[in-house]
Design a protein around this nucleic acid. Structure first.
Length: 181
DNA sequence: GAGCCGATATTCT
DNA sequence: GAATATCGGCTCC
């Protein structure tokens, strides 16, 4: 199935299919690639979602069409990146929580200012790839400096409740790739 | 490794 | 004012 079709679907169905895909960053002309390994789905009918109360200046990208990148500031400190899903007008997206460095690991180390824990968290992933608020709304399928590309699907996926939220805690909408038996 | 805590922009009350 | 889709540094095991 094409990425376009996956991203046109509901975020809960799209989220696990993004595991294994590559997020390619050529921001500032320097290349870094991460294989997506941990995601969470958010939907418009979901009290934990930024889109739950309708569009605002911050979340308006979530209401765009599937394939856009929604970037927001978390706790006033970090950037977090989501892949928007579904049709235009539906406030749904998949939060990119973590991955595995594939290319440009040295660049990620430099951006992170440390040698470990390069992309094992949503804020860390953005910092390692150079993603900031200025990339909110970019099209990941348009061949620009931020792209989503197909990758090998994980052998196994673990499903758990989402982390760091206080509403709708019970929804099993976190998906983690496992590279083990 | 687990647990506490400060930083701090945006939204909502 | 309060809460928040987090992180890193610190303490104490």
């Amino acid at each position: 199935m094409e990425l376009f079709d996956i991203l046109s679907d509901d975020s809960v169905r799209a989220a696990p299919r993004l595991l294994g895909c590559r997020l390619v960053s050529e921001i500032e002309g320097r290349r870094a690639v991460v294989e997506i390994a941990e995601v969470e789905a958010y939907r418009e009918d979901d009290p934990a979602s930024h889109s739950f109360a309708g569009p605002t200046r911050r979340n308006r990208t979530m209401f765009g069409r599937g394939g856009l990148l929604y970037v927001y500031r978390s706790y006033g400190v970090h950037w977090c990146a989501n892949v928007v899903t579904g049709p235009e007008g539906k406030g749904a997206a998949v939060l990119l929580r973590g991955g595995v460095p594939i290319e440009g690991e040295e660049l990620m180390r430099a951006r992170r200012g440390r040698d470990d824990h390069l992309v094992d968290g949503p804020g860390k992933l953005c910092q390692a790839l150079g993603i900031t608020g200025e990339h909110d709304g970019v099209d990941l399928l348009a061949g620009g400096p931020l792209r989503l590309e197909p990758g090998p699907p994980p052998r196994r996926v673990v499903v758990t409740p989402r982390v760091g939220i206080s509403k709708a805690k019970e929804k099993p909408w976190r998906f983690v790739a496992v590279h083990d038996g």
